[in-house]
Structures are given as C-alpha cells and as structure tokens.
Design a binder for these strands. Structure first.
Length: 579
RNA sequence: GGUCUGGUAGUUUAGUUGGUUAGAAUGCUGCCCUGUCACGGCGGAGGUCGUGGGUUCGAGUCCCAUCCAGACCGCCA
C-alpha cells in the first residue's frame, strides 16, 4: 500500500497514528541538526520531520533528495512544537521512521509554486509540471465542479446526454472547418464539427425532446486569449418550446452553477434588445457592472461651425463621474487610446464640467458656455464630471465608444471582479450583409427562425428581420448563444435562398435536414454555452480561458508540449492520397 | 492578411548617448546551523545577449531580414 492518508488530511486529532504518505518533495529545510520536508500531493502539503540524533541514516538519505523527488514515508503523526497557522496541516508533522525513494527528479525548469518564476512558454512546454501548481490544479478542479453542476441540473430537468459524431461533413456556412482526409474514400474529407448543431436538431426530430452534451467543437480560425481552435460547449436543445421556455430553463442553469460552485445567488437576468445594447453600450455584449451609457448628441452639437460634428452621421458622449480634474496627460492618453488603429477614432473631444459650474472643452473655439451647459444638461452631467465625445459613422463610432467606455470602466475601477451582472440580449438581426461576398449571411446560423411579424421583410429588407435569437452575457462576455429553430422545410429553403444558396446547393449540403423536416419535425430551440469561458467567469471572472484547459494551444494554434501540428509519415500521406 | 510589444545565466529580469571584465534576484551547488515553514549565514559554478547579415575603430545597445512568444484588428454562423 502506497499510502494510508493523503497529504492534506492529517490533523491534530490524528496525533499518535502511524501513517504512510506518498507524494512529491516540495521543499527541504535542512537546519543541520534538524531536517524538514514539505511533502505535496493533489490534496495538500504535510511536513515531515527527521531528527539525525534518532535516525542518522535516514537524515543522510533525505539530505540527498531534491525538489520533486517522489517518496513514500512511514511515520508517526505528532503535534508540532511550533505550529504553522498558515497551513491546514500546520498543527502536526509526521516524524519519519522510514522513507522509500519511488522516483528521482531532475531539477524542474521553473519553481513549482503558486507564484512561479516560469514564463507562459515554459509552463506550456512542461504543462505536466505546471498542473502540479496549486492555482492551475484548482482551475481544473473548478472546471470539474462546473461540469458536475451542469450535469446535475440538466439531469434533474430530464435532459439526455447523447453523443454525436466528430467525423462529419464540411458545410459552407460559418467558420473554417478542420478537415480529416479519408483513406477509404481517397480525395474526400471529413470535417470536424464546429458544433453539433444539425445533429441536435435531428435528435429533436427523432423525438429525444431534451438533449444536452458537454462536447468538443473545432473551428479553424485565428486565436485570442479567450479562443482556442478546439473548445468545449454545453450544447442544449429542447422540443415543444418557445423562446420564453428556453430563457427560463437556462437562466435557471446559470443560477444553479453559480450557486453550486461559488455559493453566489444571481438575481433575475434583465433583458435588453440588440438594438438597445448597441444604442446604450455600443456593443452587443454590454458590461452592466457600471453605467456610463452612450448618449447620442448628434443634433444638439450641430450648427456651431465645428465641421467634424456638423458633418457627422453620429456623435455620442459618455460621462465619467468626478473626472473633471483629469490632467492634460490623462486626456492625451485617452486620445491616443481611441486613435489606435484597432479603435480607429479620428480624435476625442472632452468637456470638463468644473465644480464651480464653468465648462472647459477642447472645442471652446466653437461652443459658448451656454452651448456647453446645454450639452452637459442633455448628458445629465454634474459639476465635477467629465464628458468624452466621439463622432463619425454610426457603427464605427459606437464600437469605438464602447471600447472607450470599457477603458474608463477599467481606469475607474468600475469592473469589479466580485460583481456579476448577467443579462439576456434579445432580438438579434437574422441576417448581416457580407461585404466581401456581396450577400446576406446568417448572423447566428442559418437554422435560426425569425419573428413572424417580420416575415414580409425577408424579400424587401432582409437586414431588418429580427431573429428568435438570444445571448447570455455576463460582465461583457458572451457566455451562451441560442435560438428557436426553423422546423419547416419551406421556411428553411427560404432561408437558404436568402443567404445565396441555390436550391441544388441547399439539397447537396443540407438535404438530410430538409428531408428530416418533412417527417414531422416538432417546434424546437436551444442554446450553446462556451464551457471554457463559463469556467473562467464563474471561478475567476477572467476573460482568459487557457488556465482552465489542461493542455491548451498557443496563439498560433500549436501545442508546444507535443510540438503539434507536425509533418506526417510519407507512407501515411500516400495512403491518404496526399502529396 | 495586418498592427504593436518582447526575446540577455536553469528561471525572472537590469543594462544610460554605441565604449573597460554584461549586473541582480531566484534556482543549482559546497560548507556551517536543533524548530524551520519564502529558514538563516558564508562561499562557488553558471552568459554564442533568439538567429543571420549590415553600419562602426568598437554593437546586448543602431539598421535590415528571419525565427519564437504574447496582445490586438481582420476573422470567429
């Protein structure tokens, strides 16, 4: 038997017991006449004690050990003569009477400690050492807890976990597919699923009624801190439901997970239309942890010969409370921020609302004190506040304003880690114009149904059609996205035609689902959560998911531990008909 | 496809206007140390300054190219 206890469970009440522990050497403290070893496993750290006067051979043996050696120790639990209140096992130590070396270790390339000296690159290359560190291990355990809570809730609501295939057919819509060459069908390829979308709909046609799966998805697109080429979704679908049913069911799931994993009671999710999200936050995933809404002032700033505002399609302001004392340096920084190519604003106009009731702006040449007072009143700006104004094309300016708002939120400490502000964003447009391909594209996916009252717009104004689509957003992060689906062949064909697929193409690419819709497809809808994101938000409220994935890829899609992707054997290439 | 930041000891990094032997911390290592827990004290080893080219009397430092890493834009239904 390698161990009778783990390294995190012994307490003062165990004093006197003879125990066997196995684990890794975290650190050795040799005081000459005394030697301490911190022994670590997944569960914690326990101090071992060796007194050379009693066990000189053991002392000589242990002295030669180094960090990360794997040992088994037999000894007696006893109260420490000087306790350590910072450790849960700090009241006791194990007085070693025998130690077996199970495996030696070379010196690790970085320290296995909470605050490691290792850079990201090294940590990824030696991920198996990184996972020995407490913070990383905790994240993986948290991920397990989130998954467990999800399954608990879904099972309780009668959802059935059904597996769907990974080797499927490439489709033209959406992200770029990862493909797998077929040996038995030379020259042809499987695609890895971007999501099990069509399968879950077919399971509804099949009468499974309530389906879910925690499932890997694959998209061959460029990566970000919060995006991996393979990632995990909580994929869900229900039959005989309308939008309200889906919203209630999955709001319940998010609340259950927060309660179960963190003990946090989320209040009911507010709902906001896509149009309002853009109007008030410049963004379809608003961070509601702070106000600072966008205020449109396009018309009231016109007519003062300030050409930028006079010519602008859209001008908007945000009010930063108690920032009127911002220095020239601060304002220059903000100007630089919005003028960065990624944001792309032409410039930044400010109005300081001084505490004495006067106004100072960067456009004093064009605007009188009364003009500025009028703008301030429109923005409900108080003395001591600072108004920041951007101007230009509506879409681009809203986007820039959204970035500026988030930046100010960061600077003012308004995006507090401990706050959680979820919401539903509703009524997304069904379609968006693809400038490159000169055609309409499904905004969510081409199986999304539309508001019946907007159906007449499908032909004359497709961009105005609203979808039965919804997102869960928490703290400015899109956590989940779903829709009520089309379940009728004619409507599905109309959708395909609208996004530029000919009937022949539609039949070739999606014939299976069109056919299925003719065999009594029930009304259905669902949602899919980004599971990795969910974990990072619930446990740490971070917009960084790699720490929640055991073996993630780097920003070029490489696995630096395996050094994948790699070349393959020539013979394998031949078998696959590749050159 | 594009923009930006970085690459100096095992690791994390400092390095001024281009100028003597590239400095520190940590890790490693030797000796000392009987209650440590980031133990402590004294000593030691450890560097092709990512790579290639160029400018210069002289390059870690300036220029060009390239590789790697990270962040972002495009992209991601």
């Amino acid at each position: 038997m390698y161990r009778t206890h783990n390294c995190g469970e012994l307490r003062l009440t165990d004093a006197g017991k003879t125990v066997t522990l196995s684990g890794w050497i975290q650190r050795i403290r040799d005081l000459g006449g005394l030697l301490f070893i911190d022994l670590r496993d997944r569960y914690g750290v326990t101090q071992l004690f060796i007194n050379p006067e009693q066990h000189n051979a053991l002392y000589q043996q242990a002295k030669a050990y180094g960090r990360e050696f794997v040992i088994q120790v037999i000894g007696k639990v006893s109260e420490r003569s000087s306790r350590n209140p910072n450790m849960v096992t700090g009241d006791i130590e194990v007085i070693a009477s025998d130690i077996n070396l199970l495996n030696a270790s070379i010196t690790p390339p970085f320290t296995i400690e909470d605050d490691t000296d290792g850079g990201d690159d090294l940590r990824m290359q030696y991920r198996y050492l990184d996972i020995r560190r407490d913070p990383v291990r905790k994240n993986l355990l948290a991920r397990h807890q989130v998954a467990r809570a999800v399954r608990e809730y879904m099972d309780g609501k009668g959802f059935v976990d059904v597996e769907t295939p990974f080797l499927i057919k490439s489709t033209p819509e959406g992200a770029r597919d990862f493909v797998v060459p077929s040996r038995l069908n030379e020259g042809q390829f499987y695609a890895l699923p971007q999501s099990p979308q069509t399968f879950k709909q077919l399971l509804m046609v099949a009468g499974m009624d309530r389906y879910y799966q925690i499932v890997r998805c694959f998209r061959d697109e460029d990566l970000r801190a919060d995006r991996q080429p393979e990632f995990t979704q909580i994929d869900c679908e229900m039959a005989f439901v309308d939008q309200e049913d889906v919203l209630n069911m999955f709001e319940g799931m998010v609340k259950h997970v927060f309660k179960s994993v963190r003990g946090i009671n989320l209040s009911d999710f507010p709902r906001m239309s896509y149009a309002d999200a853009l109007k008030y936050y410049g963004n379809d995933k608003p961070d509601l942890r702070f106000g600072m809404q966008l205020i449109e002032i396009t018309e009231i700033v016109k007519g003062r010969n300030f050409k930028v505002f006079d010519d602008a399609e859209y001008t908007a302001a945000i009010v930063a409370e108690n920032c009127s004392e911002y220095t020239r340096k601060h304002l220059d920084e903000l100007t630089e921020f919005v003028k960065r190519p990624q944001i792309g604003a032409g410039g930044l106009v400010y109005i300081r609302c001084a505490t004495d009731g006067t106004y100072k702006s960067s456009v004093d040449k064009f605007y009188t004190q009364d003009d500025l007072k009028n703008i301030a009143a429109h923005c409900a700006c108080k003395p001591g506040d600072l108004i920041l104004i951007l101007s230009g094309k509506q879409h681009k300016t809203r986007k820039a304003m959204s970035e500026l708002r988030l930046e100010m939120g960061n600077r003012l400490g308004l995006r507090r880690k401990e706050d959680y502000k979820p919401l539903w964003v509703l009524d997304f447009p069904l379609l968006e114009w693809d400038e490159d391909d000169k055609r309409w594209n499904a905004m969510h996916h081409p199986f999304t149904s539309w508001k019946p009252e907007d159906e007449s717009l499908m032909t004359d104004n497709p961009g105005a059609v609203r979808a039965n689509a919804y997102d869960v957003v928490i703290n400015g992060v899109e956590l989940a996205s779903g829709s009520i689906r089309i379940h009728n062949r004619a409507k599905q064909e109309l959708m395909f035609r609208t996004i530029g697929l000919t009937d022949d193409e539609a039949r070739y690419k999606f014939g299976f689902i069109l056919n299925a819709f003719e065999y009594g497809a029930p009304p259905h809808g669902g949602i899919a959560f980004g599971f990795d994101r969910f974990c990072s938000i619930v446990t740490a409220n971070l917009d960084y998911i790699r720490d929640f994935i055991a073996f993630p890829k780097n920003n070029a899609g490489r696995d630096v531990m395996l050094d994948a992707p790699s070349d393959i054997d020539l013979r394998l290439k031949n078998d696959l008909g590749l050159k």
